[in-house]
Design a protein around this nucleic acid. Sequence first.
DNA 1: TAAAAAATAATAATCATTATAAAAAATGAG
DNA 2: CTCATTTTTTATAATGATTATTATTTTTTA
Lengths: 134, 134
Amino acid sequence: MSKQDVYTHLADHGIKPSMQRVAIMDFLLRNRIHPTVDVIYSSLSAQYPTLSRMTVYNTLRLLVEQGAVQMLTIDDKQAHYDADITLHAHFRCNCCGAIYDVPAQLLSPVVSPHFEVHETQIYYRGLCTKCKQN
Amino acid sequence: MSKQDVYTHLADHGIKPSMQRVAIMDFLLRNRIHPTVDVIYSSLSAQYPTLSRMTVYNTLRLLVEQGAVQMLTIDDKQAHYDADITLHAHFRCNCCGAIYDVPAQLLSPVVSPHFEVHETQIYYRGLCTKCKQN
DNA sequence: TAAAAAATAATAATCATTATAAAAAATGAG
DNA sequence: CTCATTTTTTATAATGATTATTATTTTTTA
């Protein structure tokens, strides 16, 4: 995953690259931790001191609109973001808040002939290994 | 669905009945529209003028904790609530915001031997019939 | 190179939700 | 039944994620 790959990924989704967009997309591609806006902002602040939290919000909205990233609403407090847009489910630990990828069983895409489905999300919640032990 | 059924439903989940709790549970059982806190509060305000929005929040938290109601995070803006706790999925129209019940295909409950799954949610998003026509 | 457009940043505002504390209602012992 | 204790509800204020607004900077283009 080189910087060039990030440019390609953005271009594939019709997004013009800027320093900030590349940095945010790159962070999401390298850190598959389903970060929040604040995690992204805090992580990039050191390297990009002028970065604004607003730019993180704006960029993520753009990335989601263009289908380069998906937003997870598994956490009722704040949105999480995932650069992996292939079919998979998510597990969130109710104790530590960590979100894990889970292979998704294939679902019939036909919800109803009347509804036009654009997006499918499968969420599991419970306790992760670490938190079960404590 | 009589008032008595509401009392039974609450008792089955270890919840002591109060006028407010019965009213909120009753509303959820009769109105399968996946309402928000505000919809519930507004709908009951006429009949219960002293009802506080806080009581709606508190009661819903209790109902969810006791498993009498499930919270939906399909909408990133605000929580929606569903008295139907049987296995089913949800479809949300991105245009009008309405949330519909969708029969759920059975999912293997085994996410990972390491995770203890307490809850499963399946969300679809897209366009409903009405909004497709416009 | 200058004007126009796009993107970013700083600040303030919004709004769902939570925290806190006071008031009211229910419970229970004597 | 009555007073004290606990529980529930209510009112108010605070929090915090997100959005709106507007100024500034950067990029594009003529």
